[in-house]
């Protein structure tokens, strides 16, 4: 990194000002008011940590926290298994074809979650298209909706693009000579992948995993529409305390903890090699 003058720093800061102001007004300020709300007593009065004390002794919160972690981790693994081959395939294409295929990767990303969830009901339901096809072969209908499987399908459909891009960056930054050198030394294709390509792409995998995990923590509509009775996540709990229980200090406290968890994961992201490729332009 080159040495910069103070003037350049001031100039760069000026470029960031509009965005910083925008975020301060529309993100930091409301977030502060949520934090403030979480420290209120249920029936008014002074500041208190009552809501937090109640949260950590409520079995409902502990169960939902467990479910949120479980769903987020499995969605991350499920998406990785589907995204890695896509990234690998994309890395091998000519730039023109890659651009075309990347649009295909992004198409589901541009469709509303709500619309997609209803489409999954048509596809995966007991009388859905897939079960009708299975029925034609005399196979009994498989329950694919309103359970954890439905949640996984819905979530990974949304999350895959977030995984593909960091992995693709990692794969493309590998010097082609490395694979060639390994081949000259007599390694087979599988061995080259396992010993050279895969290890070198791990920073991209880690970065993607953290990003996808952070996004998963906040899922709301997909678990509500495609999940079963046990698939209640943090955001659904916030909704419950806001609209059904009308207990806003509790709703705010859950929201604060959710933001804290996401912030913690984001800090980890900045520490991982390859994570920087998402958080700044210095990687690639």
């Amino acid at each position: 990194m080159q040495i910069r003058t103070t003037n350049a720093h001031v100039r760069d800061a000026a470029y960031a000002m509009p965005a910083a102001l925008f975020m301060a007004l529309l993100f930091a300020l409301p977030l502060f008011s949520v934090l403030h709300q979480s420290l209120q007593q249920e029936n008014g009065g002074g500041l208190t940590i009552q809501a937090y004390a109640k949260i950590f002794t409520t079995p409902l919160f502990l169960r939902v926290a467990y479910t949120t972690l479980e769903v987020s981790i499995s969605a991350t693994v499920f998406s990785l298994l589907l995204a890695y081959p896509i990234a690998y395939f994309l890395a091998k294409q000519s730039p023109r074809r890659r651009a075309l295929y990347m649009i295909l990767v992004l198409v589901p990303f541009w469709t509303s979650s709500l619309v997609k969830s209803f489409s999954f009901m048509v596809l995966l339901g007991q009388s859905g298209i897939i079960n009708q096809m299975l029925g034609a072969f005399g196979i009994a209908p498989v329950k694919m909706l309103f359970n954890r499987f439905g949640v996984m399908v819905g979530m990974s459909h949304f999350l895959i693009p977030f995984f593909v891009f960091p992995i693709l960056t990692s794969l493309r930054s590998q010097p082609l000579e490395l694979a060639k050198a390994a081949a000259i030394m007599g390694a087979g294709k599988l061995r080259i992948f396992l010993r050279v390509t895969l290890p070198l792409s791990l920073p991209g995998v880690m970065a993607g995993a953290l990003l996808v995990f952070i996004l998963s923590l906040g899922f709301y509509i997909i678990p509500a529409l495609l999940g079963g009775r046990q698939d209640m996540m943090f955001a659904n709990l916030v909704d419950f305390y806001t609209r059904e229980a009308l207990n806003w200090p509790m709703a705010s406290a859950v929201a604060v903890l959710l933001v804290a968890a996401a912030a913690l994961a984001a800090m980890l992201l900045s520490k991982v090699r390859g994570g920087s490729s998402i958080l700044s332009e210095e990687g690639h």
Partner: peptide
């Protein structure tokens, strides 16, 4: 509030 919370816990 108490019963709705208990019911949601029970559902999970």
């Amino acid at each position: 509030e108490e019963l709705n919370t208990r019911f949601k816990e029970w559902l999970l």
